[in-house]
Design a protein around this nucleic acid. Structure first.
Length: 261
DNA sequence: ACCCAGGCCATCT
DNA sequence: AGATGGCCTGGG
């Protein structure tokens, strides 16, 4: 199906470091594996996107996945005028089209445990190895069956034991149910029970899976940006309940500057 | 050889 | 609370 949207860039979302298994196709479209499905997304001109799914599948699955009911453009405009930072304004302008995905909780947890002390190409490579030939993302039970040794063969390094702990945790708890109704602070606290999930990783899971838009993952780049452009700390209280979105814009801005500009 | 990459944990004070 | 050191691994 075909949708019109003035804030959707598959390319930028792919490069924004929140997802690691999207596959760029030769025609510039992206194949997106999630929820046991596979969606092809192709940008069609400036304000339109073609999706390889039915309207009902879009409404049941992908609409939420892409957070289509949130007005990113208005949020960016308001935040920029309120915070009054040239750096933030430039970040939002460069990042137009980036949305915050609502990804599956288990996969997101695994992905960001692996992200610790790691870089994006390697995170992609390790996840690809863990998925193996099937391309399907392994369940918690699958990870437990693999065992630490096989995980390490996939390149996880010392994070193998953290993944095993996380798999046990997801086996023993109905995490989705236990998180239901919790606010961001309690979600973060809950997630940090898992070995290998610290403050930053918990924020990534909160933001990129559970859509807690207040979560503000502080990695080394964001810390440097805060020092250089915001006198030490980003003014979260001014961010309209969406500091995490702005974090994502600034992160993307730094990333593409490093790559291309 | 050394440092860094989207940190976390353990172990201090 | 805040500060340190160690850690798998691959690339510059």
């Amino acid at each position: 199906m075909y949708i019109e949207c003035d804030w959707f860039s598959a390319e930028k979302i792919h490069e924004s470091g929140q997802c690691f298994r999207w596959v760029r196709m030769p025609d510039g479209s992206f194949d997106i594996p999630a929820f046991g499905l596979r969606l092809n997304v192709k940008e069609n001109g400036l304000n339109a996107v073609s999706l390889s799914c039915s309207e009902s599948e879009y409404n049941e699955v992908w609409r939420s996945y892409f957070d289509m009911d949130f007005d990113y453009k208005s949020h960016a405009e308001k935040a920029c005028s309120l915070i009054g930072s040239d750096y933030l304004a430039a970040s939002a302008r460069i990042s137009s089209g980036i949305r915050i995905l609502r990804q599956e909780l288990w996969e997101t947890t695994v992905s960001f445990i692996i992200s610790a002390n790691n870089n994006i190409p390697r995170i992609r490579k390790i996840l690809s190895a863990i998925c193996g030939d099937s391309g399907a993302f392994p369940s918690a039970a699958d990870i437990l069956n693999m065992g630490a040794d096989k995980l390490r063969e996939c390149g996880t390094g010392y994070r193998d034991k953290y993944l095993m702990c996380a798999a046990e945790f997801f086996q023993e708890h109905n995490v989705e149910t236990e998180l239901k109704g919790l606010n961001y602070a309690n979600i973060k606290k809950y997630l940090m029970q898992i070995k290998g999930v610290g403050s930053k990783v918990a924020d990534c899971i909160s933001l990129f899976s559970l859509n807690c838009k207040d979560a503000f993952p502080r990695d080394v780049h964001i810390k440097r940006i805060e020092t250089e452009h915001f006198g030490g700390r980003f003014p979260e209280e001014l961010s309209l309940g969406g500091a995490g979105i702005l974090q994502q814009y600034m992160f993307y801005y730094e990333r593409v500057r490093g790559l291309r500009f």
